[in-house]
């Protein structure tokens, strides 16, 4: 894989601390440290500082300030970060939103609500875990 996935961190960008907490819990279950940002600008700032540690971004759609699609486009437009996989995590379940996200470079699209198992398996998939054993 060319990177040490076990040291990679997850970054959740979501204005709901409940959802950030859920994702942190699932990350911990899978052995990842989870960085938290409550809006897009804060998320991009974290990437500015430590994008090399971030193995996956989990991104909400509806947030104050930049919306998720704008954040996604900003990540994909910056050659320092564009390699980082981004998973949308949102209540928006309509096809249009999904199409736009995938076209803009999202690797996965997880609708809320989700079970812990669903989210865990999506993260494992995105982080390239689960093979072998």
């Amino acid at each position: 894989m060319g990177r040490d996935d076990s040291k990679m961190k997850l970054l959740t960008i979501d204005d709901s601390r409940t959802i950030r907490r859920v994702i942190s819990g699932i990350g911990a279950m899978l052995g990842y440290e989870v960085l938290e940002a409550e809006h897009g600008a804060a998320g991009l700032k974290i990437l500015e500082q430590c994008s090399q540690d971030v193995g996956l971004v989990l991104l909400d759609w509806n947030m104050p300030g930049m919306n998720g699609l704008e954040v996604l486009k900003a990540i994909k437009a910056d050659n320092r970060w564009q390699h980082i996989p981004v998973m949308m995590v949102t209540t928006e379940g309509e096809k249009d939103y999904i199409v736009k996200s995938i076209q803009a470079g999202a690797c996965h699209y997880q609708t809320k609500p989700f079970t812990q198992e669903e989210m865990a398996s999506r993260i494992m998939e995105a982080m390239g875990m689960g093979g072998g054993t």
Binding site: A28, Q116, E118
Partner: peptide, 17 residues
């Protein structure tokens, strides 16, 4: 379910689970 099996193999569970 392959993802259920993937999680089962980790043998790690959250407080909720």
């Amino acid at each position: 379910s392959p993802s259920a099996i993937m999680i089962a193999k980790t043998a790690r569970y959250s407080q909720l689970a």
